[in-house]
Nucleic acid binder design. Sequence first.
DNA 1: TTGTACGCGTTATCAC
DNA 2: GTGATAACGCGTACAA
Lengths: 336, 336
Amino acid sequence: MASIKDVAKRAGCSVTLVSRVINHQPGVSEEKRQIIEAAIKELGYTQNMLARSLVLKKTNTIGVVLDTLCEEYFFPLIEGIEDQIDKSGYDVLFCSARNSTRKKNNYISYFMKNRVDGIIIYGSKLDDMDLIRRLVNAGFPFALIENDVGTLNANNILLNNEYGSALAVDHLFECGCRNICYVAGESTMQAAQRRQAGFVEAMKRHGISEKELLILDSGWTEEQGYGTFKNFLKKYGRKNLPDAFYFGSDQTAFGGMKALTEAGISVPDEVMLVGFDDDKPRHHDFSYMPLTTIRQPLEEMGRAAVDILLDELNGKSTGKKKVMYYPTLVVRETTR
Amino acid sequence: MASIKDVAKRAGCSVTLVSRVINHQPGVSEEKRQIIEAAIKELGYTQNMLARSLVLKKTNTIGVVLDTLCEEYFFPLIEGIEDQIDKSGYDVLFCSARNSTRKKNNYISYFMKNRVDGIIIYGSKLDDMDLIRRLVNAGFPFALIENDVGTLNANNILLNNEYGSALAVDHLFECGCRNICYVAGESTMQAAQRRQAGFVEAMKRHGISEKELLILDSGWTEEQGYGTFKNFLKKYGRKNLPDAFYFGSDQTAFGGMKALTEAGISVPDEVMLVGFDDDKPRHHDFSYMPLTTIRQPLEEMGRAAVDILLDELNGKSTGKKKVMYYPTLVVRETTR
DNA sequence: TTGTACGCGTTATCAC
DNA sequence: GTGATAACGCGTACAA
């Protein structure tokens, strides 16, 4: 609770000198410095960063808002951000919207009230647009990952989802599949729409006409995938199975895999599976087969977000930046 | 960038009134209120929380410092904390020490400089003690999870690791095992030491003498467990296998499981396995068998940390609190 | 109901 | 090398 004034009093000098000592600035005699340092120790003084940031108009902190902190999927992103921040001397604070747009808004407001210098936001939910506009209008520095804001003037780190779908479809064709069913995830996600569009496009390129296209509606979670496949199998049986399923998300794929296995259908012999996200199963009550999937370079994307944001904060950039990243194919057991 | 003064000027009134409107306080005519609210909108004014917290001496924020944000193991803890914080009206900020004591210290210092009202710290690393003492000496409100500071006057949320080992050993004896080998993890962790002590104690209770005890040294990671078992199997072959292995951590167990499976040893028929932590495999290039394990009530522990800390902050508590939680046995495939 | 003025803890400017 | 003092933006006695 001791303030800089208390230290000054104790050391018998002005606050100016104390401030210089604290901030390792020149202009203070060695003698005074020692007295002041002693006083700091004795009083257990710690700098009040609220006051400091108030006058400096700088917190030296970046805030990160994720949809959730409890998904392994975000690990590479978090690590990329941390790694790059570490090199910069800034501090980074994470908070979780717990998959609620309201909470996401709250935390962004929280950060915007002078608590951080800039914000990194991940999310491809379409209803985040209001919140993005707020940031843009306020002129608050931020970088947005995985949500294409189009012409809106904002730092944007994007993934080419269509390309990912092309990778998946091409790979399945190489594996001899032709009759491929796309299992769609949450349509409120921009990414989901693009993956589906990419699938359609890639299939057409392989000569499959639009009306031949198989698309199964499901959701992003394993439970939804499981339910979808239980129904599908009950309805169509195992005879009319396509050659392969391409899923909008790995979680959906895990659910599908479980339902297929329970029905005695052999993967990859009878049917091949490809997911998207390079994610891991949430549960561990079942022996999941290593899944072929499309991996996003999330770590690099996190790094890029930090770089772009810090460049803006330090006046090193001219205008907002938009960068596009490309996913890669990871071949595992489900397509061997 | 607009300040309260700008709003006052625009609205043609004093800052007092503006402040009251912002904070939803009474004592302002409906007429003025509307004018002020309009001015706020027009100027895009947002409260500067640095200044506000400075004068109120309160941030309404809790900081959480974890060893890492990138381990699924922490999910229940994080969720418990978030959940309980949500109910309280406080905000919560997470940061990751990235398994570095230095960084952990840095973030704790960061928070202590008036940036949050209280801190929640997880960690059972023994060399965290200096940092704990600093907090105690500074009189800064904090709650410590999973690190028994003994007589030190601090809020302490603990797990009974010895009891967990007793659960594991008892279960294995019920499964007909008698010749049980403990696979030890990182000895720099307090938890590791206690789990081993609990194992020894439980075995003695079952009439196994200390010199009959089998203890294998390994580490907390899957890789270490894998290496340990590769060596073990090379050295002793599969003939002299114990009835069961009890691991100080699930990760070690996954590594052991992989090595055993690769050696063609059948689990649980030839040897049974029990882990600790209720964790999941980091990798997914192998079909892991669902592992019997000891689960910690991490979500409740997170809730408790929040409750205890907030009670202290709001003057509802008398003195620091120490609470002990008990783990439970989760039976899965490796002991069936 | 409304306004003035001070203090929160810090840094920076300008004297000495 | 050293020390007043004015900001920073806010809340709040206190006075009107």
